[in-house]
Design a protein around this nucleic acid. Structure first.
Length: 256
DNA sequence: ATGGCTTCATAGTGAAGA
């Protein structure tokens, strides 16, 4: 079973990329972030025709998440219970007995911004919720755009990024608080190439120069960790015409 | 260099992303 995540930075612009990627990779599940589409404008017919069922929670201009699955999506839930938020950033569903939680973590903008405080509060609410969710769903995958580079090796220039948003200690602590619930960063369960990132700025020819960060992650619960067979970031997708600034990350899971 | 690109909502530019 292959489960993937991809911040597409507008599903309207990126629908051809997504359809091509689905046809090529044939993932069982693909979680999308930053669809930037109201639900009425979600390209359901095209994705159904490609063989995928869809759950989606979107809004105009910003945010928006979706889960695409070859197998039926069950127990679909929106948002973080008890955390009032107009921003559509969380969508969960059960597929083949595995709980999938798709997240688009707030960016934070800068460490002195109100949005940074919102980001930390959001992380806290997410962590509290997942602590309970894990009891209900021991087999849980938490994946998406975390907007956090967990360690210096996830940053092309740790000195330049030290203390900056996406790399600051409170953000890294928030990421570790999730890990402390019993999750593993599946990417690090396997040997990986040096300087492998999942996002590169559109500016400064950052992708060509590999000036990136690894901020898109697939966390797996303890019960699922032994079933992980491989994790890969598909840099090829970043080379397309009019690409998203993020590359997809994918997990191969052994299912019985 | 507080920029650089890209998208969206707009019909000028400005916000936001990361």
């Amino acid at each position: 079973m292959m489960i993937a995540t991809w911040n597409v930075n507008s599903l309207k612009v990126r629908l051809p990329h997504v359809l091509a990627w689905l046809a090529h990779m044939q993932p069982d599940v693909l979680c999308l972030q930053e669809t930037k589409l109201e639900d009425a404008k979600f390209p359901l017919a095209e994705l159904n025709a490609a063989g995928y069922q869809c759950a989606f929670s979107g809004q105009k201009t910003y945010n928006g998440v979706a889960i695409l699955s070859k197998q039926p999506l069950q127990e679909i839930s929106h948002g973080i219970p008890g955390f009032e938020d107009a921003q559509k950033r969380v969508l969960a569903a059960t597929v083949n007995g595995v709980r999938i939680v798709n997240v688009y973590v707030p960016n934070g903008q800068s460490v002195d911004s109100d949005k940074y405080q919102y980001k930390l509060a959001w992380f806290k609410a997410l962590t509290h919720w997942l602590e309970m969710e894990l009891k209900t769903y021991p087999k849980l995958i938490l994946l998406g755009d975390y907007n956090v580079a967990p360690e210096d090796r996830d940053v092309h220039d740790p000195k330049a990024w030290e203390g900056q948003v996406l790399c600051s200690e409170p953000e890294r602590a928030a990421f570790q608080a999730l890990i402390q619930l019993g999750f593993q960063d599946s990417f690090r369960l396997f040997e990986q190439p040096e300087k492998m990132f999942s996002w590169w700025d559109y500016r400064m020819q950052a992708f060509r120069r590999n000036l990136g960060l690894r901020i898109d992650h697939i966390l797996v619960s303890a019960a699922l960790a032994p079933a992980c067979k491989a994790v890969h970031i598909d840099k090829e997708a970043r080379k397309a015409e009019r690409p998203s600034d993020h590359a997809p990350a994918m997990l191969e899971l052994e299912t019985t």
